[in-house]
Design a binder for these strands. Structure first.
Lengths: 227, 227, 227, 227
DNA sequence: GATGAATGAGCGTTCATTCAT
DNA sequence: AATGAATGAACGCTCATTCAT
C-alpha cells in the first residue's frame, strides 16, 4: 500500500487556501503545526497567534495561506477524506467477493489509524482524533458557504458512495445504503471518542487481530443487508 | 403523557450553576434566551453580552447564574437527556412485549421532537437542534472537568442503559448492546443534521406515520440482535 | 456673553455616541483627551489606544462611549458648530442695524477663538484648530451614512442660514447668499490654517483691534452684496 | 490649447519619488491606478496592497517608485497644480484687457475639469475630485517635512501669484490679493464638493454657458477689487 | 528591475470578568 | 438580587516594509 500511495498527493480544493500550503516549507509547517496544536488544545482555543508561536512564524505569514482558522480545519478535514478514499480504493481493488470488499471497506473506515509514512508533515493519528472531535465544527458555521460545503464533502461523499455501491451489489433491494454507511462511519468515530474521553460510556476494548468496534461494525452491516 | 410529565421537573446537577435558573424569572429568561440564541447564531458566536441584550438584562446578572457559556450548554444538554429519559420511561412502562418496548424506545430516541407544552420557557424543538449541532462542544473542552463530564452523562447513560437492558432481555448473548444503542442514537442525530444542513448527503425523507430514519433505525437494531 | 452661555449645554445628536460622554467623568475625559490628542498628533495618527493612554483608561472603556474614532471627530465637529451657533445668536440679538448684524456675524465666524471658560473639559482654541484641519475627514468616509451627515450639518446649516437671512434682508436680490457665507467661513479657516502651517502662502497678519482676515472677510461680503 | 500642451510635461519635484513614475510603463500604471483607486475608495482606505492588486503588480514594486502612500498623494497634488498653471498661462497669454485676463483666470480656476487628452495615464476629472476631497491630507501630516511642503506649493503659489499680479494691475491698492485668490479657489472647490456630497448645503447649479459657481466667483472678485 | 515570500508592529474590536452600588 | 460602569487580556486582521531572488 505504501508503495502505491507514495505516488499520490491529496489535492485539496483550491478555494480553501490563499496559497497552497503544499507549495512551500512554511506551508507544510502550518499544516503540521495545526494538527499538532488542534490535537493538543482543541479547535476553540486554537488561534493563529498560538499557531505562529508553535511553528516559529507570525500571524501575518499564516494569513498568506489561510483566511481564517476555519479554513484550516476544512483543509484538514478534506485532506483526511481524500486520504481515506485513496486507502479505500486500494483496499477493495482486485477483490472478487463483494462481501469481502464490504468487510475490508468497513474494517478500514472503522479502524484506528496508524501513522502513514508517506506524508511527512502530517501525523495521521492525531489528524484522525481531530476529525473525530472537531470536524463537525468545520462545516457548521457562517464562514463556510455552500460552495465550500460541497467541496468539503466531495471526498466524504465519494467514500460513502463507493461503499453504498458495494452494498447494493450484495443486496440490490436494500433501501438505506447511505444511511447505513454514514451511521457506521460516524458510530465508529463516536465509539473511539467515547473510548478516549468518556470511558464507561462505551464498551469497546481491544481484542486480538481487530478490535471490537470493527467487529461490531462489520456484523451490524452484514446483518442489516442480509436478504 | 402530558398529564404524567406535567408533574415532573428535570433536576439538573447543581454543580453546573451558581444559582438555580429554575428558581427565578430571570433564570428562566436566561434558559429561554440561551436556547433561542444558540439556535440562531451557534454556540461559537454565543456570548454573555449578546444573551444579556437578547433577554434585556446584563452580563453581570447572568454571571450570578452561570460561570461561563460552557456551563449553560452543559445545563441544556443535561436537561435534554433528563427530559428524554422521562419520556423513555413513560414510553415503555406497562408494555409486556420486549420487542415492542425496543421499538417504542428507538422510535422515541430517533424521532424529530415536537414541542412539549409542559416547559414553558423551553422550546424543545430548538433545543434538539442544538443538541444535534453543538452538544459535542459541551463536553470536549478545558472548562469541563471529569466530575462534570460524569454529571453530564448520567442521564445519557441511564437512557442507554435502559435500552441496553431491553436488548439483553431479547437476546442475552448480544455482545455490543451499548455500542448499538449509542450508534443508533447518534446515527439518527446525524441523519437529521445532514437532512437540514447538507441535503444530498443523506437519503432520509418523510414517509407516512414515522419517517424512514426511524424505520431504518428500528430495522437496524432488530436485525443486529436477531438470534 | 459668558453669563448667558453658562446656562447652555450643547446637545449633540445621540446617534453619534453609544453613551453620552457628558454623562460621566470618564466621558468628559474622553472628549478632553480627544481634543488634546488630535490637536497634537493629527486625526490620522489618533487611535483609541493612544487616547486610552492619554487619559489613563483603556480602549475597551472608550468603546463604551464611541463606536470608532470617526464618531468622535463627528461629535467634536457638531459640538463646535452648536457652540458657534450659540455665540452667533448672542452676537446679533437686539441689534437693529442689519449691516451691523452682518459685520458682527462675520467677525465672529472668522475670528480666532478665545478659550471659553464655560466648558471646562473643552479647549475651544485647540478644537477650532482641529475643525480647520480635520473636519473634512469627519464627513467624507464610509463610516458616516447620510442620516449622520445631516445630523452633523444641522448646526452648520443653521449658522449659514442665519447669516444668509441677514444678507437677504440687506439685499433681497442677491442670488448667492449661501455660497457667499460658506466661502467666507471656509476661506477664513483656510487663511488661519495657512497662517499656521504654510506661512508664505497667505498674507494674513495681526492688525490692531481685529486682524485682517476679519477685515478682508467683512469687506468682501459687503462689496459682494452692495446694490 | 491641446497643441500647445501636448508638448508639455509636468515636472514634479524629484524628492517626491524614488524613481520617476513617468520613466516607465509600470510607473504610469502606478499613477493611473492611484487616481482610480483613491477616487473610488478614498485616501484613508488606499493602501499599497490594494494598489498593487488594482494594477496587477506587487507592493514591493511600488516601493521602487514611492516611499509611502503620502508621497503619491503629494505627487498627484503637485502634478495637478503644475497642470493647472500650464492651463492658466495659456488662458491669459496675449490678452490685453486685464479684466478679461482676470475673468478668464477665475473661470479656469473655478471650472469643473474636463478630461484632457494629453495625459493618457491621468484621468483629470477624477484627479480633480481627489484634490477637492483629499489634498489637505497631503500636506498635513508627519510624513511631509518642510522642504516638501514648499515643493508641493510651488505650483500652487505660482498660480496664486499670477492671479494676484493681475489683480494688482487692475487695482494697485487692493490690500488682500492673495487672500482673495485663495478664498475664491478653495471656495469653489468647496461648492463643488458640497454639490456632490452634501447636496442641500450649497445652492450651486448648472446655468447655460458657465455654471453659477463661476459666475459667483467672478462677480465676487470684481466687486472686491473695485476702486 | 521587478517580483514573490515573509514579517514586525500595531490597529480596531470583543470577550470574559470584576467592582461598586 | 440585580445592575451599571469599567477594564485586562486577547483575538482577528491589515499595514508598511524588508529580504532574497
Amino acid at each position: 500500500m505504501h508503495q502505491f500511495l507514495s505516488n499520490i498527493q491529496i489535492k485539496v480544493n483550491e478555494h480553501l487556501y490563499l496559497k497552497d500550503p503544499e507549495s512551500s516549507a512554511l506551508g507544510k509547517r502550518i499544516i503540521k503545526g495545526s494538527i499538532e496544536l488542534i490535537y493538543r488544545i482543541g479547535f476553540e482555543s486554537f488561534t493563529f497567534k498560538k499557531l505562529a508561536t508553535e511553528i516559529g512564524s507570525t500571524e501575518a505569514s499564516i494569513y498568506r495561506y489561510f483566511e481564517n482558522k476555519h479554513k484550516i480545519l476544512l483543509y484538514l478535514t478534506i485532506w483526511y477524506w481524500g486520504w481515506t478514499e485513496s486507502k479505500l480504493v486500494f483496499a477493495i481493488t482486485n477483490i472478487e467477493d463483494k462481501e469481502v470488499q464490504l468487510r475490508n471497506a468497513i474494517e478500514l473506515l472503522t479502524a484506528d489509524v496508524q501513522e502513514d509514512g508517506n506524508f511527512k508533515h502530517i501525523n495521521e493519528q492525531k489528524l484522525q482524533k481531530i476529525i473525530y472531535a472537531e470536524s463537525a465544527k468545520a462545516y457548521l458555521n457562517k464562514y463556510v458557504d455552500d460552495e465550500n460545503k460541497n467541496g468539503v464533502f466531495s471526498f466524504y461523499k465519494s467514500v460513502v458512495q463507493r461503499v453504498s455501491d458495494i452494498i447494493l451489489e450484495i443486496n440490490p433491494t436494500y433501501p438505506y445504503p447511505n444511511m447505513l454507511v454514514t451511521t457506521i462511519i460516524e458510530g465508529a468515530h463516536l465509539q473511539r471518542f467515547f473510548g478516549e474521553h468518556l470511558p464507561g460510556l462505551t464498551n469497546c476494548s481491544e481484542e486480538k487481530g481487530k478490535d471490537n468496534v470493527q467487529a461490531f461494525s462489520i456484523e451490524l452491516a452484514l446483518n442489516a443487508i442480509k436478504k
